[in-house]
Amino acid sequence: MKGLPPVLITAIVLVAGFALCAMQFPNIASTRVVGNLLTDNAFLGIVATGMTFVIISGGIDLSVGSVIGFTTVFVALAIERWGMPPLVAFVAILVLSAAFGAAMGAVIHVFDLPPFIVTLAGMFLARGASFLLSTESVPITAPVYSTVSDFALRMPGGGRLTAIAIVMLAIVIGGALLLRLTRFGANVYALGGNRTTASLMGVAVGKMTIKIYMLSSLLAGIAGIVFSFYTSAGYSLSAVGVELDTIAAVVIGGTLLTGGQGSVIGTFLGVLIQGLIQTYINFDGTLSSWWTKIATGVLLFAFIALQQGLVALARRPVVKSAGAAS
């Protein structure tokens, strides 16, 4: 293979960026800051893991931000107003969001519609539904919330690895293994390579599509629960635009927007890069937080240009003494 794999480039950017930040603000290189970074971006890491599967399979899921928003409102209302035990509320919302994803996958497959359109509709639907439930922010006061929020593993140097950060790390690792080591994972890449071909090779394309969007929505549901722990509230306007941050993280992580190539680890690094930019801006104190968006935009642009370059390179016939010939 020519050049560096995209994931390595992402890793280098992250390390270099971290080093630069640490030079200016030595405090950044502490477990305390890193712990906060993981906690602040826990929900993003979780949705981005799901989005990685979708994008590698050649699709896109624009509904995740709305699903997160809906989840926070649902959970808040279920616990505070409808008197559900938190655990029951969690199970209910996860079943609901998985079904929602499965339905989108089924529509995409059966009617052969572009995922962009179907999940865009899903985005409006989920956001609209959360407004129907409540337009106001609903604070969550259940004792589980404070217990879980207080829980954290102490890291050397005084950093706290919170429960939601642990959940995120577990999901990232689980997702990476699922993609790399299982038949399901191989089929995800196959779908992204070429749907028709995959189906001619015997992959059950319909079932796969349904499962992939189901996974994405399920993870969005989990991210929503995590988000409700993070903010201790449910609000129908939460996580607006998160789908775009998520896609950005996936692409910066080296996943090809056209599908067929990518990795969960890369996505995780992409999330960390976004978190790092945010942290830097917080440390600086004078910069507007919109600089996060600008920096993300620049990075995104650079990575897409880089990928196009790599794709063009890969298209060129590789000169190999063809084993078949002569």
């Binding site: 191989a186 890449y189 196959a190 071909t197 001619l200 090779m201």
Partner: peptide, 16 residues
């Protein structure tokens, strides 16, 4: 009909 983005081995054994 094979998938250029997968390894040769994955192509031979896809789904099995």
């Amino acid at each position: 009909n094979l998938l250029p983005n997968l390894s040769v081995a994955q192509n031979l054994f896809l789904d099995r």
